[in-house]
Simulated assay, not measured.
Amino acid sequence: MSVDLIFYTNPQSRGRIVRWMLEEVGVPYKTEVLEYGTTMKAPEYLAINPMGKVPAIVHGGRVITEGAAICAYLADVFPEAGLSPKTAEEKANYYRWLFFAAGPLESALSNKAVFKEKPEADKEMTLGYGNYRNTLDALSIAVKANPYIAGDRFTAADVYVGSHIGWGMQFGTLEKRDEFVDYFARLQDRAACVRAAELDDALVKETSEA
């Protein structure tokens, strides 16, 4: 049987977000593992993603890159998985916090991880997220408001936001506030999340032993 969905990733990358989303969706897909600096920068892959970065998917010949976009796309084209927002209230929260995580939150956490210093106050206006403290305070509001990001139901936005919260707490770029710990605890035992982690961890082990 031919597979209509190809997943390009590396198990030590943001591809883990998309792996989780694919396992939530539950459709067949083929995994293509790329290596940093070699196959990720090869002409064949640059024709798919000129950035030379993962993750990316090709579905029915259509290319989708960027983790948040892939999560939203998969939720939309596979509605039977029930991961898209349904009500107007869910849609408002879903799109607000999904793109908050893809923009301000990721930038704030990445800058903290790489530069480990606070920008000068007069430079904050040039940053999309302003400052780290305000970004975390906004995230606290998001996870306190409802059991899940969009409301009472788990959606694709939880895959993306939850991944950033889980990684941030694991690697020390996100404070372990009680609300973050409680929110992520509701996600990490989901069968798809566990399955995805096992698949990627096996790939890490396989490549390290090769």
Results as ranks from 00 to 15, higher is better:
188 Q>R: 13
150 A>S: 03
181 V>K: 12
147 P>R: 14
98 L>F: 04
123 K>E: 08
19 R>D: 12
166 G>Q: 03
110 S>Q: 12
54 V>L: 06
52 G>H: 00
115 F>R: 09
21 M>R: 01
32 E>H: 09
9 T>D: 03
44 E>L: 04
39 T>S: 08
192 A>V: 00
83 L>H: 13
90 E>P: 00
139 L>Q: 08
208 S>Q: 15
114 V>D: 00
71 C>G: 04
197 A>Q: 14
82 G>Q: 04
28 P>R: 11
167 W>D: 04
126 T>R: 15
170 Q>G: 10
65 T>G: 05
118 K>N: 03
59 H>P: 02
128 G>L: 11
11 P>F: 07
93 N>K: 11
10 N>G: 08
181 V>W: 05
71 C>K: 03
35 E>A: 14
120 E>L: 15
99 F>W: 05
144 K>L: 11
120 E>H: 10
108 A>L: 01
208 S>L: 15
50 P>H: 11
28 P>Y: 10
128 G>H: 04
175 E>R: 05
121 A>R: 06
26 G>M: 05
132 Y>D: 00
170 Q>M: 15
18 V>I: 15
18 V>C: 08
202 A>I: 11
17 I>C: 12
23 E>N: 12
147 P>L: 12
172 G>Y: 00
69 A>E: 02
96 R>I: 06
91 K>Q: 15
112 K>M: 01
119 P>V: 03
154 F>H: 09
34 L>K: 00
59 H>F: 09
42 A>C: 10
107 S>Y: 14
85 P>G: 01
76 D>F: 14
82 G>P: 00
26 G>A: 09
8 Y>M: 02
13 S>A: 13
83 L>W: 05
15 G>L: 09
6 I>Q: 13
31 T>D: 04
168 G>P: 01
30 K>L: 04
121 A>V: 01
184 F>W: 10
38 T>M: 07
21 M>G: 06
157 A>I: 03
180 F>R: 03
93 N>Q: 15
74 L>G: 03
94 Y>E: 06
140 S>M: 13
161 V>A: 08
126 T>M: 15
186 R>N: 01
160 Y>K: 11
148 Y>N: 06
158 D>V: 07
180 F>S: 03
81 A>L: 05
37 G>M: 03
130 G>V: 04
57 I>M: 10
79 P>T: 04
204 V>M: 14
118 K>H: 08
